[in-house]
């Protein structure tokens, strides 16, 4: 009995293709909802600074005088809290992750 079960499993597995995503060779498709990194459409931004105040890690810096919006990717925890509070809806969550870096600055 045990042998038959084993033979059955082996033949079944032989027909299956590999479970692996083969990541670096085959690029991964992310879903629409995936939280990757935050992007700004600066044309609509009014530099109100609401995202800066709501950010739990203080990764966003907004300068109203100089009309400057910056985010530190090494501090952002991609919670998408800033995207939710943005009054002009000019912040959006892209589904690709920010890449690794060899130095902080």
């Amino acid at each position: 009995m045990a042998f038959l079960k084993l033979a059955g499993t082996v033949t079944k597995r032989m027909g299956m293709k590999s479970a692996c995503y083969m990541y670096p060779v085959v690029a991964r498709e992310f879903t629409k909802t995936t939280r990757g990194h935050v992007e700004l459409d600066s044309a609509d931004c009014i530099y109100c600074g609401l995202c800066q105040r709501k950010c739990p890690t203080k990764a966003i810096e907004v300068n109203r005088q100089e009309k400057n919006w910056t985010i530190q990717p090494l501090r952002c925890i991609v919670c998408s809290g800033c995207v939710d509070v943005c009054p002009k809806k000019c912040l959006r969550m892209e589904n690709t992750y920010s890449s690794s870096v060899t130095s902080k600055f």
Binding site: T31, T33, T34, C79, D84
Partner: peptide
């Protein structure tokens, strides 16, 4: 989970 909530281990869908 990623398809529905947006994150893999940190779901981030509750508020």
């Amino acid at each position: 989970v990623e398809d529905t909530a947006g994150g893999r281990v940190i779901f981030g869908s509750c508020k």
